[in-house]
């Protein structure tokens, strides 16, 4: 039995369907990313898991208990929003104590201990008396995280926790959040539209598109075996071309350029070359007008004498080819 079971959740707003028969399981202690383009229903799903929104049909089962209509206040989770939603009239410490004060079982000293502990965990001990506006984006993010874990919740929900930050801070915080999550062993569901974030941070990924789940699996299995052309295209990059009534897909790095006289699978006309330093990206057109691209070591590209209009011969190893039926449009 999984820790958290999402069963056939459907959610409609006035005009549109935000979630259509969505199901997934989440195991205890793992970090799962809900990944998908903006507007696909990720936040809605997260809010339903939190009890902040009610589904039209379907069930949420937590720890074997049907929690579908349990109010948020009784579900014992921590949440971090994209906006962080820090109370601007309270200091970092007050933000964290605000929730702790609700626990009647804790003494004042216990509360302060607990707050200090989580602040140490997110490395904010020097900023406890600052107001949110005095903090950098990354510090605000960590304050929100500290507040969310201070009540020792049984699971943690993160809605695009890093998307408001600049690239450098984001990369660092990915590691920090993952480390904290591991050390607490807390079940975590994180929403993101950033495939790199999902690939690097999660134990498993739930890929969503247009209100439905496209695929669930480990980052590796999703990358290697994308179940649908959408997943193939959304995670990493993918070349698509027609072959015998089917759509063939292969990752650019799996294509091997060869000399004209060697055995090859694909012949294409070079459309453009893009020198990127160590690698050169080659854009090419297949006879059926499908466009593909390959990244080749620059020296190798020179050796092959590639230029605009030249012919490019490629080997597409069968084990890396993925076939989709022609109906499944990209």
């Amino acid at each position: 039995m999984s820790f958290l079971e999402i069963k056939n959740i459907t959610k409609r707003f006035d005009k549109q369907t935000a979630l259509s028969n969505v199901s997934a399981n989440i195991e205890k202690g793992e970090l799962v990313c809900i990944l998908g383009p903006s507007g696909c229903g990720k936040t809605t799903l997260l809010r339903i898991i939190a009890g902040l929104e009610n589904a039209n049909s379907g069930k949420i089962i937590i720890d074997g208990k049907d929690c579908t209509s349990l109010p948020a206040s009784e579900r014992n989770f921590g949440i971090v929003f994209q906006s962080y939603a820090l109370f601007p009239n309270m200091t970092v410490l007050q933000n964290i104590l605000f929730g702790l004060q609700q626990k009647k079982s804790l003494s004042k000293a216990d509360m302060l201990d607990k707050a200090t502990e989580v602040l140490r965990l997110v490395d904010l001990t020097e900023h406890t008396n600052k107001y949110p506006r005095q903090l950098s984006g990354g510090q605000q993010q960590r304050t929100a995280l500290a507040r969310a874990i201070a009540l020792s919740p049984s699971y943690l929900l993160l809605d695009e926790p890093l998307s408001a930050l600049d690239a450098k801070v984001r990369a660092r915080l990915r590691g920090e959040i993952r480390a904290i999550q591991r050390s607490l062993g807390i079940t975590t569901i994180m929403v993101t539209h950033d495939q790199e974030e999902a690939l690097t941070m999660s134990d498993r990924i739930i890929v969503m598109n247009n209100a439905v789940v496209e695929q669930v699996g480990t980052p590796r299995s999703i990358y290697d075996n994308p179940a649908t052309p959408f997943v193939a295209n959304f995670i990493g990059s993918m070349n698509f071309y027609k072959s015998g009534g089917e759509i063939c897909a292969i990752r650019p790095e799996k294509l091997i350029p060869v000399e004209r006289h060697e055995a090859y699978d694909i012949a294409a006309a070079v459309k453009a070359l893009e020198f990127k330093g160590a690698l050169t990206r080659i854009y090419a057109v297949l006879p059926e007008m499908d466009e593909i691209y390959v990244d080749i070591i620059s020296d190798r590209a020179d050796a092959l004498g590639l230029h605009e209009g030249a012919l490019l011969f490629l080997k597409a190893p069968a084990e890396y080819q993925i076939k989709y039926s022609a109906k499944a449009a990209v």
Binding site: R47, A50, L52, P71, A72, S73, E74, R75, F77, G78, I79, F81, S83, A85, F87, N89, M90, F98, G99, Q102, R147, A148, L151, P153
Partner: peptide, 23 residues
């Protein structure tokens, strides 16, 4: 005001009236 203030408070089991008065 951020619409999520209430959501965060709810997740921490803080009663509505308290969020209203304090935030």
């Amino acid at each position: 005001l951020d619409a999520e203030f209430e959501s965060v408070a709810e997740s921490m089991n803080i009663p509505r009236w308290k969020t209203l008065l304090r935030v």
